[in-house]
Amino acid sequence: MAESGAAPRPAVRWDRWLGPLWLWSLLVVTVIIGFIASPHFLTTLNLSNVLQQAAPLVILVAGQTFALIVAGIDISVAATISMGTTLMMMVVNGDPSRIPLGLAAVLLAAVAVGVLNGAAITLLEVPAFIVTFGVASIVQGVVFLYTDQVNVGSPAPQMTEWGYRTWGPVPFLAVVALAFVILALVIQNRTRFGRWMYAVGGGEEVARLAGIPVKRVRVAAYVFCAVSAAVASLAISLRTGSGDPLGGSGFDWDSIAAVVIGGTALSGGRGGVAGSVLGALLLITMGNIMNLVGVSGFWQIVVQGAVVILAVTVSTVQTRRAQRLARTNIAVQKDKRRLKLRRQDR
């Protein structure tokens, strides 16, 4: 094959590294609204607080995105988080020397949940929604069994210290979240596995014909999702310092909402971690603003629902417009060709 002369520049898919532009704009608008609405919003203390609050959800949505990219969903993340917080506290139980053991236990248990999800989905060919729904119930039930539904264990003093540590205005947890997001972005954009996730979600048959191990890719996506839930659970337990058997409740729908707001399609193969992180930040920021101006927490839930629908409408419209553009593109080329032929006729 002939060597091409010019050194080609590799393509950077900015949309996959940075997320949709319109979400950035929406986030900026939200921040401006927050600035206008409350004098307390744009303060170092508040923003540092927001970042700290956002950390667990940001970590979690990275994993949830992977589940959605492979055309699946993971509802069991909330239960996995509850399992993580309780397990950590029970294992450590005030003894700093047992922290590594706690970390290992939480991660291992999460990997087991991920493998269970992935294996059931790929081997039994049951829809991801049903499998993870069932696994959520199983895991939560087991957590209740070993905790008797009361807070268990206690943290080592260092843990709470790290949970609230800040470097200047930058909280330690925000740094952890950022590192985790970068890791997820690199996996998504720079590894074979990342590309394969998009292929599996975008067209399973095409992926199979391309020789991609479809089942393994699926299982790996769920394992990563469960691991992200485990890391999120550690972030939570550093802050709360308690082994709450319901510590993860609400994170299932919050994470799915953030991912969907971020432009990842439920049908798979589109979107990415960056959008999800923006979605999570948007939700947290809006919640924070509403708190500051004294809007009821119930209204926040209402607003979250509206934002989800709005965001999905925008990304659907964008996809459809792109497809219509492609069709016009085809029509234009066809016309060009006809013109060419007419010229040949003459």
Binding site: A11, V186, R190, R195, Y198, L209, A210
Partner: peptide
């Protein structure tokens, strides 16, 4: 048998993406 949401080069290299440093996909080579 192409995936519409993926780019041309991603489709072309699908399943046999060249890897470089740290076993990451080598974008230049792609």
């Amino acid at each position: 048998t192409l995936l519409p949401a993926m780019t041309v080069e991603e489709n072309l290299m699908l399943g046999h993406e060249p890897r470089g440093r740290l076993r990451l996909v080598d974008a230049h080579e792609v």
